[in-house]
Amino acid sequence: MARICVFCASSTRVDQRWLDLATETGKELAARGHTLVSGGGKVGMMGTVAAGARAGGAYTLGIMPQVLVDWEVADMDSDEMIVTEGMSARKDLMLEQSDAFLTLPGGLGTLDELFEVWTTATLALHTKPIVVLDPDGFYTGLFGWLAGLTDDAFIRREALTMVTVAGSVPAAFDSIEAALDHP
């Protein structure tokens, strides 16, 4: 059983298909016996992943800064909620508490979290698996742009190999589990 941190949108205006993907992710995480580590929100895809995970019997750990708790967006149904002083402390604790990272579609906050764990991996500060769930080519443009940066030596080619891109929820969890079984 692994502690898998899921990064995704907290927007309340995302299409239903992304909420369905979040539900599927939470249920698959639970079915495989993992623990969910999340940003602790009850809204958008973040809340939907947590609800799906709990519906399947998974333990859920939310990590949220006090300012967002004050905005009343905290998932108080989490099995455990850790409140931090700020966003940086939140990301540090999510990195510390997790065995692997799974990024679903999202916006700036999701990208910030993905790049945080990816950058720290390139600096050899951790060797935890990082998987991006890319249904329907959501992240194709981003990865194309990043690949182009290797031509100008802004990114080392080996950095791109530190992230696995998966096209489906089962494939994403298969990748995480394979990486955890054979580090």
Rank of each mutant, 00 (worst) to 15 (best):
V6G: 01
D134Y: 04
T161N: 15
T161E: 15
G40T: 01
I130P: 07
W18L: 14
A166E: 03
A171R: 09
V37R: 02
A53H: 06
G52R: 08
I63S: 02
L61A: 04
L160V: 07
D70S: 09
A22F: 03
G62K: 05
G33Q: 08
L133S: 04
L125H: 13
E96G: 02
R54G: 04
W118H: 03
H34E: 00
H34W: 01
V132P: 06
L104M: 14
M45P: 03
L19Y: 02
A74V: 13
T23Q: 12
A159N: 13
L111K: 07
G148W: 05
G40Q: 04
E72R: 13
L104V: 03
R17W: 07
A124L: 13
C5M: 03
A171H: 08
T127Y: 13
V49Q: 00
V43M: 03
L95V: 11
K27H: 11
K27N: 11
G56V: 10
S11M: 06
G52S: 09
F138G: 09
H34R: 00
I130D: 00
P65R: 04
L146I: 12
T35F: 02
F143C: 10
S88C: 09
W18M: 00
T122C: 13
F143Y: 13
T122E: 07
D15L: 12
T119I: 10
W18S: 00
L133C: 05
L111E: 10
T23A: 11
T140H: 12
K91Y: 09
C8M: 02
S175G: 08
L68R: 00
S98K: 05
G52H: 08
